[in-house]
């Protein structure tokens, strides 16, 4: 499917949504956090099942985290972006919609301290057992000494 068609499909369901096609096969969607499950649910209903990963960017100066869901569907990488406040970084789990998200939700919870509400398995996945619970190494204010 052409990226413009994917864009049309999403815009048709969510008019006024911030969406751009930086190049063929890449679609970037920017949505408010409240609509995350709704948008991912809509995409799932269209046939999207593959979540490649979840990335987090720490925008420390603007006091927010950017959370990006990289989905793959019909030759298109669809990136769904939400922004959350840095002082209260909580996102809902997307596992009811995309069960494959569990690994990545566990990863960002440990590495960034972005808390995932209702996550089915809250254990950390990447960090060793003896790593302190409240130190998140991929945050910009964590310094490697």
């Amino acid at each position: 499917m052409r990226s413009e068609e994917v864009r049309g499909l999403i815009e048709g369901r969510f008019p006024g949504i911030a969406i751009r096609v930086p190049r063929e096969r890449r679609v970037m969607v920017h949505i408010p956090l409240e609509r995350l499950i709704e948008v991912l649910g809509f995409l799932r209903d269209q046939g999207v099942t593959h979540l490649s990963t979840i990335s987090v960017v720490d925008r420390i100066e603007e006091k927010l985290f950017e959370v990006l869901y990289h989905l793959y569907w019909e030759n298109n990488e669809i990136t769904v972006r939400v922004e959350i406040p840095r002082e209260n970084p909580v996102i809902p789990t997307v596992t009811p919609v995309l069960p494959g998200a569990l690994t990545y939700e566990r990863e960002i919870q440990g590495m960034f301290g972005v808390m995932v509400k209702d996550i089915p398995d809250p254990r950390r996945i990447i960090l060793p057992d003896d790593w302190p619970l409240d130190v998140y190494p991929l945050r910009k204010d964590y310094m490697v000494q």
Binding site: T53, D58, E107
Partner: peptide, 22 residues
Amino acid sequence: KSNGSNMPERIKIRAPTLANWL
């Protein structure tokens, strides 16, 4: 993600094995 300097702002790597644990 780049920020205009000579160092990246963020690089996220997801290697295939991580995707296959589930």
